[in-house]
């Protein structure tokens, strides 16, 4: 009985993870500019991956395999923000202008930092 329950939960997790992975990838293609695409990619890197890994952990049971899956998950959660941040900063440095509906930086009394650090145009 409990084995059946675990199977059902793991099936649910894996299906949900697959759904979020595909949704993130669709966003990667649909979004209009670089910064909005990053948001779509981070859906894959967080919810899609963690649901798939939790589903696999439920199948594997307690043991070395589950521990390794936790390491893979921790790797995703530690390296994901680093890469995203580096990408955003490099793009701003190269003057890739984000598509903006509203720029609240000036309204909050701060000059946009990209202009103060970049080379004079």
């Amino acid at each position: 009985m409990s084995a059946l329950l675990i199977d059902a939960m793991s099936l649910l997790c894996i299906l949900a993870g697959s759904f979020f992975t595909i949704a993130g990838a669709i966003g990667l293609v649909r979004m209009p500019d670089l910064f909005t695409r990053m948001h779509a990619a981070s859906v894959i890197d967080t919810l899609g991956v963690s649901l798939l890994i939790v589903g696999m952990m439920l199948q594997a049971g307690a043991g070395l395999v589950s521990l390794k899956l936790i390491f893979v998950l921790a790797l995703f959660f530690l390296t994901g923000p680093v890469v995203t941040h580096a990408l955003a900063q490099a793009a701003l440095h190269e003057r890739v202008e984000p598509l903006l509906a509203e720029d609240r930086r000036a309204a909050r009394g701060q000059a946009p930092p990209a202009d103060s650090e970049g080379a004079p145009a």
Partner: peptide, 19 residues
């Protein structure tokens, strides 16, 4: 940068595919 982002996503998906 779009290509670098896509490359990073391909890498993440490849890890999951391996698992």
């Amino acid at each position: 940068f779009d290509r670098a982002l896509a490359g990073n996503s391909i890498g993440s998906l490849a890890i999951i595919l391996l698992a």
